[in-house]
Simulated scan of single mutants.
Amino acid sequence: MLTLVNVLGRLSRRSFTFPTATQDLTSWSQPGDVSFEPLSSKLLQALSWCIPALTYDKHKGYTGAPHYAAISALKCGADLATIITTESAAIPIKSYNPEHIVLPWLEGEDAVKNIIDSLPKFHSVVLGPGLGRDSKQLQIAERLIYEIKERGLPLVIDADGMYLITQKPDIIKGYDKVILTPNAAEFDRLYTVVLQKAPTEGEPIIDVKRLARKLQVTILRKGFIDIISDGSESLVVNTEVSPRRSGGQGDILAGLLGVFNYWMHVAQSMPHMINERHMGLYGPTLLAAVSACALTRECNKAAFDKHGRSTLATDMIDEIGTVFVDIFGKDRTAGIYS
């Protein structure tokens, strides 16, 4: 029978001789040393009460964000993923995956110049995962937002990027190629700053639309259901998802958004999409957000079905290729970019 060992106080200093298979464990131990209790069903039930239940309404934080955002973009179909970070973080991030292009430019006198000079090489930008809240790095991020807007690049702002936007919401106001991705707490803070009042209890869809209209941007409020609005139209993605909220899931969503935001803006100008009803009704940012949310949620469910409570972000990433085909169909040899 399995036994549970409970160490009581300080063990005596005598030399221990472990019991043989024929010895009685309780007679072998001395009072105050070690006690043994069978792992009965009642004891196991008592232990299970101490384990937190999985729930759909928890939020989490994570610091290894750049890798998850970049690898998710690559798994989704991006040709290259470049991570711009600090010098101290560059080697650890590069060691995660050789596919990453890692540039240690997020500090120093030439930081802004180096990044601005590289912008013509990029098709889409995800700003925020792993950024941190150092004042100098936030100043660099603010300057880059203006440069990104000037070049008309699709932009996703997530994580610590949302902290910057909450401090200075006007820097993205009116930019129609940006998608903000606040979680519930980040949304409440931004809403309160911009509208000078707390969100309405029990009306998240209305609140997201109201804030999006005020800022004239697309907002994706992440949660048990994902709520998306550009201030005019609103969409909800509530496909089944697991209660397992592993660290890195928001970063996966951000990376996928970066890819879909670019794809949808390219598709918008294609001849066969000009009269497409959904593109005309919702526009590229809403469709990008719906696509990324659907893919992320299905990857979460697929990973949870296999791994249950032990599901990690890496398990979700492993599902991207298969789930992508399940949702959007098999890859075509000729597509909208041919």
Score class of each variant (00 low, 15 high):
residue 38 P to L: 14
residue 41 S to Q: 08
residue 64 G to S: 05
residue 27 S to W: 06
residue 60 K to M: 05
residue 43 L to D: 01
residue 49 W to T: 11
residue 51 I to Q: 02
residue 22 T to C: 05
residue 26 T to G: 08
residue 61 G to N: 07
residue 24 D to W: 03
residue 20 T to C: 04
residue 18 F to H: 07
residue 37 E to I: 13
residue 9 G to P: 01
residue 56 Y to W: 12
residue 56 Y to T: 11
residue 60 K to H: 14
residue 66 P to E: 03
residue 47 L to D: 06
residue 14 R to M: 12
residue 18 F to V: 11
residue 10 R to V: 11
residue 25 L to H: 02
residue 10 R to G: 07
residue 60 K to T: 15
residue 11 L to N: 10
residue 4 L to A: 10
residue 38 P to T: 01
residue 39 L to F: 06
residue 60 K to S: 13
residue 21 A to F: 05
residue 10 R to K: 09
residue 55 T to W: 00
residue 12 S to T: 14
residue 64 G to Q: 01
residue 18 F to Q: 05
residue 31 P to I: 00
residue 46 A to C: 04
residue 8 L to W: 11
residue 26 T to I: 14
residue 29 S to H: 15
residue 5 V to P: 00
residue 29 S to Y: 14
residue 24 D to E: 07
residue 16 F to K: 09
residue 25 L to T: 02
residue 2 L to Q: 11
residue 32 G to R: 01
residue 41 S to M: 04
residue 59 H to T: 14
residue 46 A to D: 12
residue 48 S to E: 13
residue 51 I to L: 09
residue 23 Q to V: 12
residue 32 G to T: 01
residue 33 D to N: 15
residue 38 P to D: 12
residue 55 T to V: 00
residue 18 F to G: 10
residue 38 P to K: 08
residue 45 Q to H: 11
residue 5 V to K: 09
residue 19 P to Q: 03
residue 7 V to P: 07
residue 11 L to V: 07
residue 13 R to M: 09
residue 13 R to E: 11
residue 51 I to W: 02
residue 6 N to Y: 10
residue 17 T to S: 08
residue 61 G to I: 08
residue 30 Q to K: 15
residue 20 T to N: 11
residue 34 V to Y: 12
residue 55 T to H: 00
residue 60 K to V: 13
residue 64 G to E: 00
residue 3 T to C: 09
residue 66 P to D: 06
residue 30 Q to D: 15
residue 2 L to C: 05
residue 15 S to G: 09
residue 59 H to V: 04
residue 50 C to T: 08
residue 59 H to W: 13
residue 61 G to Q: 07
residue 10 R to D: 12
residue 23 Q to L: 10
residue 3 T to S: 11
residue 54 L to I: 03
residue 8 L to K: 07
residue 12 S to I: 05
residue 43 L to K: 08
residue 29 S to I: 15
residue 23 Q to P: 02
residue 26 T to W: 14
residue 37 E to S: 14
residue 60 K to I: 08
residue 27 S to G: 10
residue 13 R to A: 10
residue 62 Y to G: 02
residue 49 W to F: 05
residue 49 W to G: 07
residue 9 G to C: 04
residue 33 D to L: 12
residue 39 L to W: 04
residue 19 P to L: 01
residue 45 Q to T: 10
residue 3 T to L: 14
residue 20 T to D: 04
residue 17 T to H: 13
residue 60 K to L: 07
residue 4 L to K: 08
residue 60 K to Q: 13
residue 63 T to K: 14
residue 2 L to F: 04
residue 29 S to D: 15
residue 21 A to S: 09
residue 55 T to G: 02
residue 13 R to Q: 09
residue 18 F to T: 03
residue 50 C to E: 09
residue 48 S to K: 13
residue 25 L to C: 11
residue 54 L to P: 00
residue 42 K to P: 02
residue 16 F to H: 10
residue 65 A to M: 02
residue 25 L to F: 14
residue 14 R to W: 09
residue 38 P to Q: 14
residue 30 Q to H: 14
residue 53 A to W: 03
residue 23 Q to H: 06
residue 54 L to A: 04
residue 52 P to W: 00
residue 58 K to E: 08
residue 26 T to C: 12
residue 7 V to C: 06
residue 22 T to N: 09
residue 27 S to N: 14
residue 59 H to F: 13
residue 50 C to R: 07
residue 19 P to V: 03
residue 63 T to N: 08
residue 15 S to H: 08
residue 37 E to G: 03
residue 39 L to Q: 03
residue 66 P to Y: 02
residue 14 R to D: 15
residue 25 L to G: 02
residue 58 K to S: 12
